[in-house]
Every structure is written in structure tokens, then in C-alpha cells.
Amino acid sequence: MSSNLLLPEETSSQTLRRRLMAVAGTVILVATYLTLIITQPMGIVEGLGQGVALGTFAAYLISAVLLLLAVLPDLPVSTLTLIPVALALNIILGQFVGSVMIPLYIDSIGTVIVGFLAGRRAGAATGVLSTLVWSLFAPTVLPFAAGAALVGFLAGTAARYGALRRVYLAPIAGLVAGVLVGVVSSPVATFVYGGTSGVGTGALVAAFSSMGDSLLSAVTKQALISDPGDKAVVFLVAALLVYALPKRLSGSFAFVRRYRVLGKRVSK
């Protein structure tokens, strides 16, 4: 029987189409990343540079949108209503911290909360949507959609395997997630923008460049300094906010109950 009595059951062709979109999105993302890392195209401004910039931009954005379209019809209504709140939190907190000259972003608290409460697919969808909506106010974030999806996906994965059952596990999971996100996002910063858009992060890249690193290497090292710290803080703050939720509210999410995300913290 359909899980929702008011809606028709999904057909097998729709399921297949969504799976194909998810596979295509993942393949495009991985292939683009590997191509950039292996070939390390030179000449950021000249000839090849523009093609690489446009190709990276398009590939990361298309993969993120494909993953979003594959995941979205699966999400229950309780998650769908949570996502706009998460997007608004990302934007409000991100714009506030983005204006301060520290090499942290703190722009994914909402995405991580959704990942913790509703699982990795919901987290990934929130990451992509957050980037798409935010791009109406700050267009430069658009190619980072895939990185934002990864943040939500990893938050859901961490919650599923018990990162919220002890408060100290959340920042550790954030550190690991930050390393992965930093590695995936740094080709975008390098090949689309030729560096970073913040003065604090730019100073770090300049410092590594002055030590003889290539631009990709310098941006990756900067990301490996900024992202793990940033995600550790974000995961910790998001975990504390989830702990502060009434048990009736956090326990209403099937993901939280099914995987005992909060351990003994939530009543049945």
C-alpha cells in the first residue's frame, strides 16, 4: 500500500529514472574531479583556463542538480517543510559570518541540522537547494552546490552511524567531513575563480603560494585548514541545537527513530 493514502504509488520507470539521474550526477562529479586533479590544467587566464572554468562550473552544477532531482520526490513532507528553515538559517548565518574577516564560512548549519534529523538524502538536497537559492543573492556560490550537497550527505551519514550519541563525536565527524568537502571543493575555487573570494582565505592561499605550492595545491591546503575547523564548529553547533529540540519534535523524524540518532536522548 502507498505510504501516503492520498498519493499514487511511484511507478518502476520513475524509480529507474531517478536512480539513473543519481548515478549520472555522481559519475559527472567524480569524473570532473578526477580529470582536474590528474590533468591539473595550466594557464588560468589564457585559452584553456576559460574552458576549464566553464567546464568545471557546468559539471559541478549539473551533477548537483541531477542529484537534487533524483532525491527530491523521495522526501517526506515533514522534511520538505524543514528544508526552507534550514536554507534560511544557512543564508542568515552565512552572510553574517561571511562579512567577518575570519577564514571560516559557518554557512551550513541548516544543512547539517537537516542531515542529522532527516538523513543523508535530505541533507544533500538541502545543500544543493541552499546553494541555488543563495545564488540569487550571491551568484559566486553556484558552482559550490556539489560541495554543499556533500556536507548534507556526510552529516546524515555521521548521524546514522552514531555521531550524535555523544557530544564529542559530532565535531570529530565534522573534522572528517571538512577534509572531504575541502578536497572536493578546492578545484572549483581554483579553476573557476583562480583562488578564493575572502580576504582571510586569500591570505592563506597567498602564504602557501609564496612557499612554492601550485595554485591548486595552495587552495587545497587552505581548504584543509579552513574546512575541517569550519565543519567541526558547524557539526558541534548543529548537534547542540538538535539536542535542544523538544524530544517530541526530534522524535517525530523517522530517520531519528530508525537509526537511534540521538541514542538515549530521545523518548520513544
Binding site: 515533514s78 524543514l82 534560511a88 538559517l89 535542544a244
Partner: peptide
């Protein structure tokens, strides 16, 4: 904290 808690409660009611 109050912002997140009230917003999430509203979202749950809306669902």
C-alpha cells in the same frame, strides 16, 4: 537558539 527552535516547531506544524 530561540530562532531555530521556533522555526522548526513552525515547520513541523506546517508539515
Amino acid at each position: 537558539v530561540p530562532l531555530v527552535l521556533t522555526s522548526m516547531q513552525d515547520a513541523q506544524d506546517r508539515a
